[in-house]
Nucleic acid binder design. Structure first.
Lengths: 200, 200
DNA sequence: TATAATTAACTTAACGTTTGTTAAGGAAAG
DNA sequence: CTTTCCTTAACAAACGTTAAGTTAATTATA
């Protein structure tokens, strides 16, 4: 009989995303995804042409609208220092609250072929990166804005990438996973690194 | 007939390492590794109990001695500023010249279960991290030394993790991949971030 | 010193499993 | 009566792994 709750594309993606994030493309099988959805493996092919298509749809879904709130901050009319602080804080929150997002970005940067890297760049990074680079230029000519932009984004990403190994490292404390604490640390470091006094 | 050039464990590892780095554990098959070595898949089982064992041996080989040169710098008797500058420069060189190293670290942080994370921590990170944290304490109490240590290592790692996607981002220039340029940028940023004047 | 026994380093062939994917069909909603 | 959303069954290919046999170098024995 026809199922009472037909599974939509979105439901499948919702299940597939964390599986791809945790196990990678080759690590997450169609059967595993199907099972978690509560459906046969063949059913997935009713919604998606093949695994690649499903994977790409998952990527696009995770990436969409993610950069929006960040771009809004970057194009705000407050002072550059405030925009930087807000940007860092927001990025920390984002990365902390949606682990799939940062894990999938990471995987794409390692596994992605040219076409998928282009997708990642255009869908997530490009405009965002442009905004950060321009903000860096505003903040002062002390550093190469490109290198500075990568540094800022990199610090944030890395702090949360290392979450899993953190417990096995010395001096580790719980507060180091708090996005607010991390955000303040990074903001302070970067602003002072730019020769700007950081209030409080 | 018996092969004229019997393949040693090390030769197999030399081939396996870049394959694991590029494709991950499940992405690199025993047959692929064997083919690249120039040997049958079954031959690998003469040298290693199973795939897990081969993988772990590859990890250990890549990680061994990697942290040594860095630890030497950290325990040097020069000024803290100099040690930081040297450390950052050396880490940039290391990560740039052995891509397998940083890719495998990255994969382990994502894929590794508890036992493998412990291996990674004890084999690569622990002593190194301890050294950087202590250096950070010496450099001044302006920041939490733990967060600062992660930030420093993170900036370096991220700069080289993003190499693949770099060409598709705005403002990208070739010099941004030069470890010397990156090292100088990071050193300047961090030292100024600590309120220390960076010479030159 | 010649020869027999052992061992290291493989080979081919096959195993059972899992993989992505397809074919054929069925039930229910519009 | 078509379309949507699924099912079970099956496919060939690739997977990790093992069994059994082969060759050549090494070692032990006579």
């Amino acid at each position: 009989m026809r199922p009472l709750n037909p599974k939509s594309k979105k439901e499948i993606l919702t299940v597939a995303i964390p599986l791809f994030a945790r196990s990678g493309y080759s690590g997450a099988s169609m059967r595993t995804i199907a099972q978690k959805v509560g459906v046969s493996a063949a059913a997935l092919y009713h919604h998606f042409q093949d695994k690649q298509t499903l994977y790409l749809a998952a990527m696009t879904q995770v990436f969409s609208d993610k950069a929006d709130s960040l771009e809004k901050i970057l194009s705000g009319r407050t002072s550059p220092e405030q925009r930087l602080a807000q940007f860092i804080t927001r990025l920390c929150e984002l990365v902390q609250q949606d682990k799939n997002f940062s894990m999938l970005i990471q995987r794409e940067m390692m596994d992605g072929d040219e076409s998928r890297l282009k997708l990642l760049a255009s869908e997530v990074y490009y405009t965002l990166f442009e905004g950060v680079t321009e903000l860096c230029q505003e903040l002062g000519p002390k550093h190469d804005p490109y290198l500075l932009a990568i540094s800022i984004i990199g610090i944030v990403m890395y702090h949360f990438q290392t979450t899993a190994i953190r417990p096995y490292l010395p001096y580790s404390k719980e507060q180091h996973s708090d996005p607010k604490v991390v955000a303040r640390h990074i903001t302070k470091l970067v602003l002072q690194g730019l020769g700007i006094d950081y209030p409080e």
